[in-house]
Amino acid sequence: MKYAVAAAALFLTVSPALADKWDLSTMTCQQFISQDKSTIGIILSWLDAYYKDEDAPPVIDTEKFVQNAEKLGTYCAANPQIGLITATDTLFGGD
């Protein structure tokens, strides 16, 4: 229930961005870093969850989140034509 309330609050605060659809599999680093701040935040949050282990506890480590966001921003600025998922797989995939 807590998650539903938090998700609803998030969606209410970013309602203008909800009209868009983002296909992260085709988005380049340049397209990612060119987004507005709230869109980048949504994508970073999704990526943070995507790269967690399946059995990881539902905890957001804000220090690690910010470090990973900075790492991705730096990588994408240096490699603007690389696909976003390729970049995140390289940085956070671990496989």
Rank of each mutant, 00 (worst) to 15 (best):
T88K: 01
F11Q: 11
S38M: 05
G83P: 03
K71C: 04
A87R: 01
P16S: 14
A7D: 02
V59M: 02
T28D: 03
A77D: 12
E70I: 11
N68S: 09
T88C: 02
D61H: 14
P80M: 08
A6K: 05
W46H: 14
S34N: 15
A17C: 09
A9V: 01
V59C: 01
C29K: 11
K52C: 13
W46A: 13
T13D: 12
T90V: 10
M1C: 06
W46I: 10
L24R: 02
K21M: 09
S45L: 14
Y50V: 04
W22K: 14
I43H: 01
A49Q: 05
I43F: 02
D89V: 00
M27D: 10
T90D: 08
D23P: 06
V5P: 04
T74E: 14
N68M: 13
T86S: 14
K2W: 00
F65M: 12
D36G: 09
D55E: 13
I85L: 15
K37I: 00
W22V: 12
L18Y: 02
C76P: 10
C29A: 10
M1S: 13
A7G: 01
Q30N: 12
Q81S: 15
G41I: 06
V5F: 07
L12W: 03
L47I: 15
G83L: 09
L84I: 07
Q35M: 08
V5T: 06
Q35G: 06
I33D: 06
D20Q: 12
T62P: 02
T90E: 12
V59D: 01
E54G: 14
G73S: 11
G94M: 03
A78P: 02
T74G: 07
I85R: 03
Q31V: 07
M27I: 02
F65S: 06
Q67G: 06
Q30L: 15
A69V: 14
L18V: 08
D95V: 13
D36R: 14
A49P: 04
L72V: 00
D20E: 08
I82R: 10
A87I: 01
